[in-house]
Each structure stands twice: as structure tokens, then as C-alpha cells.
Design a protein around this nucleic acid. Structure first.
Lengths: 208, 208
DNA sequence: GTCTATACGTAGATAGAC
DNA sequence: GTCTATCTACGTATAGAC
């Protein structure tokens, strides 16, 4: 690649990011399903047809946001769970991962809605966009298994049901927070505060 | 009221119910936010302007559905919790109430979405429509308090946090079920199956 | 890569005849 | 209580000039 095409690629990536940012801002005001291409175009200073140079359709924008959001959320949880403070302590890793999940979701509420609920009628994420979610669940399972190996949790904690219950409890906190107290700051929130007690319920039940 | 106006009132109520039913059916196919008045009118065999005889605006239809749904959900939970099998057993009443909540939500998924999430940009329920929700939480609190009185639960179970945690766990199960396994029959469902274990987590933690 | 022009459809809501 | 006609606005998407 020569310098010219590099610059062109960088510029293109910048515009793409601008479009996605504008789409998110509009979803904040008009709802996730209420985003319109005309409004996005206005906000980035383009006419609607120009957007089709960057995304082939409206659902492609949703898919790009889903993909990026799933990747970011995965990374946030992954980072929290492999941070030096919790190295070698799987239970602390679970707690920190859960906290990171809630924190990220409150920082990115509209993308979190896109990930957790299905607010857009015609849209389902592509397999590629969905992949980081599966990866995140697999990693959670691995951490739980490590806790079982280390004698910290009962073997039943590594069953399908127990893992699903863990993720459901966390998703429940996020859902309630976003729906019923959406304006709270990350780290705050009437329902987000319930996360630690909720995780405690789970850990107590499955402790060995 | 004479016979004539009675009949007129009955007819009017019937039409109103028909319109609401059509709106719900359309939400099943097009998403909660995707319902349109034109489509509703087509389905009930009217032209769009005629709907304004029954509802002053589109959000009024959402509000009517919210009001009816909140009332029905309250009644279902209330009934389950005051059924003869569980009379005098507050813990069984809590379990049965939670089951009824999940069952109703799966039987009425689009209205459940309207109640649990906020899928429609311009719409917030009126106080009157929201009232049964508050009543339902108050009744849950009362049942928990009865369990504490009877020595079945620790006094900490009656705190604000504990009550909120109870409702959050149940709402979490419903949210996950509706978002990730929406086609399951009521009484079935990958996430709905987690309800009993989830309630058990809570009961165990707060037992005296 | 961005534009104008346009196709084609839809929306929510109101006026006023019947 | 229902209609026709209409307003006003918006939407996604494509064709084709520049």
C-alpha cells in the first residue's frame, strides 16, 4: 500500500466512525429503533445518499454498532477479570467482570439496549457481530470452572444452569437499570447498586 | 342510562378492544415501536381517521395497552399469591407470584416489553396506567413482611434493597427470556426455567 | 466521494361532507 | 361514527451528473 491509499483508508475509517457516533447520538434522543438515515446524514453534514458509500443499508449500521459494542463489552469484562488485583482469585474475577459489564452498559446505554434486547424489528446481528458475546460467556464458564478446580465453588456451579443463572442475574440488573433509572451515572443507579448483593446470592449458593 | 345508550356503550367498548387487539398483533410482527395507525386501521377495516374517534393519538393506544397490561399482570400475580394452596404460607405465595409473573409475561410478550423496557421513544405511561405496578410491588413487600413476622425470613428481607433485589431477579429472567428465546411456549423457555433456582437463591440468602 | 433529483412509500393528524 | 381528501412531513434507496 502506498501513502496515498493509506491516507485514504484512514480518512475513510474516520468518516465511518463519525457516522456511527452520529447514529448513537440520535438513538439517545429518538430511541434505538427511531434512528433515521436522513438525520444521521444531517448530523455529519452529508446528504443521505452519501452514507451509502460507507454502509450498504440501514441494518448494516446496526450490525456495525452491534459488532463494535459486543467487542468492547467483551474486552471490558475480559480486562476486569484478568487484572492483576484479581489474578489467581477466580471469585474476585467474577465480581470484577460483572462490575465491568454493568459499568460498560451504563456508559453505553443505547448500544447495551441493542445487545440485550431486540429493539429493531428487521435487525438480527450477523454471526460475526455476535461472536464476542459467545466468547464472553465461554470465558465466564472458564473462570467458574477454575473456581471449582480451586475448591472455591461447588462442582454444580459449573453446570449449564448455574452459568446461565449467573449471566441472567447480571443482565437482569442491567435491564432494570436501563429501563427504570436510565439517567443515572455509571457507578450509581438504584438497580446497579444491587449488583454486588446479587452476585453474592449466587456465590453463596454455589460456594463449596 | 336507557337501552339505546347502553348498546352504544357496549358497541363502542367492543370496537375499542378490537383496535387494541389489532395493535398488539401488529406489534408481534413489526416490533412494539413499529406499530402504525394505518396498519391498525387496515386490520380492523377502518380508515385511519376513524381511529381518532376511539383514541386521541397514537400514544393513547400505547397508554391503554400499558394500563390494561399492568392491571392484568397485577391481577395474575395477586391471584397466584392468594390462592388457597398457598394461604398462610408466604414463601409459597412469593414463589407462585413469581411464576405467575413469568407466565403472564410469556403469554403477552409484546405488552410485557412495553411494561419492562421503554421501547417507544415518545411514550411514557401515565400515572394511572402505572399504578398497578406500584400496587404489585407494595403487595410483594407485604407478603415478605408477613414471612418475616412468621419467622420464616430474616428481618433484612423486608428492607428496600432486598425487595428490589427480589423483583430484579424475576424481571431479569423475563428480560432474558423475551430477548433471547422469544418463541418458547409459556411454561417452557431456556431462561424461564431458571426462575425457581433464582427465587431459591433469594429465599436461601434471607431465610432466618 | 459527494451531490441533485427522484422514485416510491409511509407516517400522524385534521377538516369537513355525509 | 365513518368517510374522502388533504396537509405536512418523513423515510429508504437508487440513478446519474460532477
Amino acid at each position: 500500500m502506498d501513502t496515498f491509499s493509506d491516507r485514504r483508508a484512514v480518512r475513510r475509517q474516520g468518516t465511518t466512525a463519525e457516522i456511527l457516533a452520529a447514529a448513537v447520538e440520535l438513538m439517545v434522543h429518538d430511541g434505538v429503533a427511531g434512528m433515521s438515515l436522513s438525520a444521521v446524514a444531517r448530523r455529519v453534514g452529508m446528504k443521505p445518499p452519501s452514507l451509502y458509500e460507507y454502509f450498504p443499508s440501514k441494518v448494516a449500521i446496526y450490525d456495525a454498532l452491534f459488532a463494535r459494542g459486543a467487542r468492547e463489552l467483551h474486552d471490558a469484562v475480559h480486562w476486569a477479570g484478568s487484572n492483576p488485583d484479581v489474578a489467581g482469585d477466580p471469585l474476585a474475577a467474577l465480581r470484577e467482570g460483572a462490575r465491568a459489564y454493568v459499568r460498560w452498559s451504563m456508559t453505553n446505554p443505547v448500544v447495551a439496549q441493542l445487545l440485550n434486547w431486540r429493539p429493531v424489528p428487521g435487525f438480527a446481528p450477523s454471526d460475526a457481530a455476535y461472536a464476542p458475546n459467545l466468547e464472553m460467556i465461554a470465558e465466564t464458564r472458564t473462570v467458574i470452572a477454575a473456581a471449582v478446580e480451586g475448591g472455591l465453588l461447588d462442582p454444580s456451579a459449573a453446570t449449564e444452569e448455574a452459568v446461565l443463572l449467573f449471566t441472567t442475574v447480571i443482565a437482569g440488573v442491567v435491564s432494570q437499570q436501563l429501563a427504570n433509572d436510565p439517567l443515572a451515572a455509571p457507578g450509581d443507579g438504584r438497580y446497579a447498586r444491587l449488583l454486588d448483593p446479587a452476585v453474592t446470592l449466587w456465590l453463596e449458593h454455589y460456594k463449596s
